[in-house]
Computed example of a mutant assay.
Amino acid sequence: MNKKAKTPVTAGNILLFVVTIVIAIIFVFPIFFNIMSAFKSNPEIMKDAIAFPKGFYVESFKYLVTKTDYPKAMLNSAILTLGSIAAMIVIIPMAAYAIERNNKKWTNAVFVFFLFGMMVPFQVYMIPLFKELNIMGLFGNLVGPIMIYIAGSVGFGVLLYTSFLKGVPREIEESAEIDGCTRIGIFWRIVFPLLGPVTASMVVLQGLGIWNDFLMPMLVLPSGQTKTMIVELFYYVGEFSSRWDMIFAGTTMSLVPVLIAFLSLQKYFVKGVSSGAIKG
């Protein structure tokens, strides 16, 4: 009976394991601290921030849900995230497909133009952008941020999709074209279903960025009007006092959709990132 050979325990393996544990603790501790503090009252947090809660304090959650606009702010964040992601999934894969399958000078120039957009920080063009939104009548509503998120994700999205498309055989498309399928039909019926892993990567990476974004919604959505989740929590931080119980409770509530989405797409996310890295 054959037995699997055991991996020898070496100093290098032990060091790698220890480093992995340390990195995991560094990443997990802020989440653990946040959830633990969410079930403490504000005086209890101020007295000893790192102590375990003495009881199961849930008044902060009740107050946020029933007495504040936080549920509406979470809904606004969900609309921004889902609306932006839906538009990205429709627009960006088609752009990447056109660039990858039409290897011409002008498509390569468009690809370089998209990549150049990744190199320009948002802070450089945000003031002219806000003026443009004001002229177009999109300043102060959710349509403006959605358009900005879509435009800002084109460079990274096209790079991700074109890298993955290099591994999709053209013979499948040629067979469908012989059967009389149109170019649009070939993409949506044959090619796009094969892009599931990279689409999951796109959803997770861009969705997390939009869901947790603070700067752009803070500037584009004026005070007193439509606010997102992170902007709503920001107003609990004062110059002389802060409601840390509300902040920790709100951020804990915001973690739930993120964890559900990531755990649901984790397998496809890892596959998409690794495939894109190898094929690119």
Rank of each mutant, 00 (worst) to 15 (best):
residue 3 K to Y: 07
residue 4 K to D: 07
residue 5 A to P: 04
residue 5 A to N: 12
residue 7 T to R: 12
residue 12 G to P: 04
residue 12 G to M: 12
residue 14 I to S: 13
residue 16 L to K: 11
residue 19 V to Q: 06
residue 20 T to A: 15
residue 21 I to Y: 11
residue 21 I to H: 04
residue 25 I to V: 15
residue 29 F to H: 02
residue 29 F to V: 10
residue 31 I to S: 08
residue 32 F to I: 12
residue 33 F to P: 04
residue 35 I to T: 02
residue 41 S to Q: 03
residue 42 N to E: 03
residue 42 N to T: 04
residue 43 P to V: 11
residue 46 M to A: 03
residue 50 I to P: 02
residue 52 F to A: 14
residue 53 P to G: 05
residue 56 F to R: 04
residue 57 Y to V: 04
residue 57 Y to D: 06
residue 61 F to Q: 00
residue 63 Y to R: 07
residue 64 L to V: 11
residue 64 L to D: 03
residue 66 T to V: 12
residue 67 K to I: 00
residue 68 T to H: 04
residue 70 Y to S: 06
residue 70 Y to V: 14
residue 73 A to V: 00
residue 75 L to D: 04
residue 78 A to N: 01
residue 80 L to K: 07
residue 81 T to Q: 07
residue 82 L to H: 01
residue 83 G to H: 15
residue 85 I to F: 03
residue 85 I to K: 02
residue 85 I to Q: 01
residue 89 I to A: 06
residue 90 V to T: 14
residue 91 I to Y: 14
residue 97 Y to F: 15
residue 97 Y to A: 10
residue 101 R to N: 12
residue 101 R to L: 14
residue 102 N to R: 13
residue 102 N to M: 13
residue 103 N to E: 15
residue 104 K to R: 11
residue 105 K to H: 03
residue 106 W to D: 14
residue 108 N to C: 05
residue 113 F to G: 10
residue 116 F to V: 00
residue 127 I to K: 09
residue 128 P to V: 08
residue 131 K to E: 03
residue 136 M to W: 11
residue 138 L to T: 07
residue 138 L to Y: 10
residue 141 N to P: 06
residue 143 V to G: 09
residue 143 V to I: 07
residue 148 I to L: 14
residue 148 I to K: 03
residue 152 G to Y: 02
residue 154 V to E: 02
residue 155 G to H: 05
residue 158 V to P: 02
residue 164 F to Y: 15
residue 165 L to Q: 01
residue 171 E to V: 13
residue 172 I to Y: 14
residue 172 I to V: 09
residue 176 A to E: 10
residue 183 R to Y: 14
residue 183 R to F: 14
residue 188 W to C: 05
residue 188 W to H: 13
residue 188 W to K: 02
residue 190 I to K: 02
residue 193 P to S: 05
residue 193 P to C: 05
residue 202 M to T: 11
residue 202 M to F: 13
residue 206 Q to W: 02
residue 206 Q to T: 04
residue 210 I to E: 04
residue 215 L to Y: 08
residue 215 L to I: 02
residue 215 L to T: 07
residue 218 M to I: 05
residue 222 P to W: 13
residue 233 L to D: 00
residue 233 L to Y: 01
residue 236 Y to P: 13
residue 237 V to M: 11
residue 237 V to I: 12
residue 240 F to G: 08
residue 242 S to L: 08
residue 244 W to Q: 00
residue 245 D to E: 02
residue 250 G to Q: 05
residue 251 T to I: 05
residue 255 L to E: 11
residue 255 L to H: 07
residue 255 L to F: 11
residue 256 V to W: 02
residue 258 V to K: 00
residue 259 L to N: 00
residue 259 L to K: 00
residue 260 I to C: 10
residue 261 A to K: 05
residue 264 S to H: 12
residue 266 Q to S: 14
residue 267 K to Y: 07
residue 268 Y to I: 11
residue 269 F to K: 01
residue 270 V to W: 01
residue 272 G to L: 06
residue 273 V to Y: 00
residue 273 V to L: 13
residue 274 S to H: 14
residue 277 A to S: 15
